[in-house]
Amino acid sequence: MEKIRLRACALIIANDAILLIEFKNDNGVGVHYNLPAGGLEPGETLVEAVQREAKEEACVEVEVGPVAFGYEYQPTKNNFIYGDTHSVGVTFECKLKQGSHPKLPENPDPYQIGVKWIPISELFSIQLYPEINKDIVDYYRDENYRNYVEEHEIQRSKLLH
């Protein structure tokens, strides 16, 4: 039976910028960004996981709002580009609680090098994983956006452009 990893993600937007976690690439060259996110721990709800991940990765307390969108990575449909674990991510719209200021944690993930506010207008100039830049911008602009994104659709659209 295939295992599925369930992930919870925080979409934190304020003052026309999005809060992202900055990582150095595995090969040591360049950087990429992720939303504050991670897998659920035993006995944890999606909302609890979002709150924990925001605290662990960006040292912030968040109010968790509605689901913004879902994302699914199915390994065989994507030639295993991100490994062999089927994963489903649920991204929640979040707001920082008053007095909460993002910063790099004292003991970050070994590849995490920053916590940054990236202007929405610059979202297309960075490497974001998964590559949901357009989905975030469309959501932010309240335009017609995909509320459910499959990785193989992202890869297909990259081939067409």
Rank of each mutant, 00 (worst) to 15 (best):
V90K: 15
C59S: 15
P75D: 09
L159N: 14
E72R: 13
H152Y: 12
G83K: 13
E2V: 12
V60S: 13
R7F: 14
S100G: 07
Q112M: 05
G114Q: 04
Q98W: 00
G43Q: 00
N79H: 13
V50K: 10
E143R: 00
K95R: 15
N25W: 02
L40V: 02
P66V: 15
F69G: 08
L20D: 01
G38W: 05
E44I: 09
I132D: 13
V47L: 09
V60W: 07
L40D: 01
E72L: 03
C9K: 11
F124Q: 12
L159Y: 11
G114W: 00
Y148F: 15
V62P: 08
E93P: 05
W117C: 10
E151R: 14
L11N: 10
T85V: 15
K103Q: 10
D26Q: 10
S121I: 06
T85K: 15
V88H: 14
F124E: 12
G30T: 03
P36A: 12
E72M: 13
L160D: 11
P75N: 14
A58G: 07
T85F: 12
V88Y: 13
F23Q: 06
I4D: 02
I132A: 05
L104W: 02
L40T: 05
E131Y: 11
N25P: 01
Q112P: 04
Y33W: 06
A17C: 10
S100M: 05
V50H: 00
W117T: 04
P130F: 05
L123V: 02
L46F: 02
L11G: 00
P110A: 06
A68Q: 04
L123A: 03
N144D: 13
P42I: 04
E151T: 13
F23A: 01
I126N: 07
V64H: 12
V88W: 09
K3F: 12
Y145T: 10
L46D: 00
G28Q: 08
F80M: 15
W117D: 10
C94K: 04
F124N: 12
K158R: 15
V62D: 11
A54V: 09
L20Y: 07
Y71D: 02
C94I: 08
E44V: 06
G99S: 01
G28H: 00
F80T: 02
F80Q: 10
Q127T: 14
R7A: 10
K134D: 10
K95D: 03
A68R: 12
D109L: 02
V137M: 14
Y139V: 12
Y71I: 05
